[in-house]
Computed example of a mutant assay.
Amino acid sequence: MTGCTPTGDAGAADGPTRSVRSPAPGTAAGGSGSGGTGTAKPAVPASPTPAVSGGKTKPCTSGDVKVAEARQAAVRPPGTGTGAAVVAVANVSKSTCTLQGFPTVAGAGNGSPGKNVPLATTHSGSVATVSLAPGARAWTKLTFVNVQGEADGYCVSGATPASFPTLVVGIPGAGAHQTALDDGVFALCDNKATVTAYSATKPS
């Protein structure tokens, strides 16, 4: 069965990030003499601390990134539905930006956001800050409760399988973006998915 998968709106970024700020060393004030013949030295102001080591890199916004592709994952649960999909997000701006966190997912509601079907998401793995140069990609993997059997298939839970031509994938701080599977539709059971945090490494 060609499956369609509803995407749900889950998970913002959680967990520690790996970005590190390096404070510029301050210069200590010179000592002032007390008594004797020494003269007091004027205090030397400490140099300012940079906001981000190596310069400022802003978080990605909705205008900086878009979903570049969504394809069925090579490693996925057995069944006849979609099983799992790998989604790539690309920086389409002219400057480097950062993103971090887990996607939200919903099945697109025929052009009406109010009819979207959110998927309940379970987070897998840890969060790290991903720095995206212009044209670079970050990746997330969506693993669904797969549809079983032939034809329209069935759900082990007894629920009715769902299929969606497109999903709405959320990027923390950078909006929600609609995407289609490169081949077929998203098919899944139980309106839920396990999602990995966005990463610079493409999952299998």
Rank of each mutant, 00 (worst) to 15 (best):
P23I: 13
A24Q: 10
A24E: 10
P25H: 11
P25L: 12
G26P: 14
G26L: 09
G26I: 07
T27F: 13
T27P: 10
T27Y: 13
T27M: 10
T27I: 14
A28P: 14
A29I: 10
A29F: 13
G30Y: 15
G30K: 13
G30E: 11
G31C: 15
G31T: 15
S32D: 15
G33I: 01
G33E: 04
G33D: 10
S34V: 14
S34I: 15
S34D: 12
S34F: 15
G35N: 06
G36A: 14
T37F: 11
T37S: 12
G38S: 15
G38I: 11
T39A: 13
A40Y: 05
A40W: 11
K41C: 04
K41F: 06
P42H: 09
P42L: 05
P42V: 10
P42M: 03
A43R: 11
A43V: 07
V44F: 02
V44C: 05
V44N: 12
V44G: 05
P45C: 01
P45A: 05
P45R: 06
A46P: 11
A46Y: 03
S47A: 10
S47K: 03
S47V: 05
P48T: 09
P48K: 09
P48H: 06
P48C: 00
P48W: 09
T49Y: 07
T49N: 08
T49P: 09
T49M: 12
P50N: 07
P50K: 03
A51R: 13
A51H: 00
A51L: 07
V52K: 05
V52A: 01
V52G: 08
V52W: 07
S53C: 04
G54C: 08
G55P: 01
K58W: 12
P59I: 00
P59F: 00
C60G: 01
T61H: 00
G63D: 06
D64M: 06
V65C: 02
V65F: 04
K66H: 01
K66L: 04
K66P: 06
V67G: 02
A68E: 02
A68P: 00
E69Y: 05
E69L: 07
A70W: 02
A70G: 06
A70I: 04
A70S: 08
A73K: 01
A74H: 00
A74V: 06
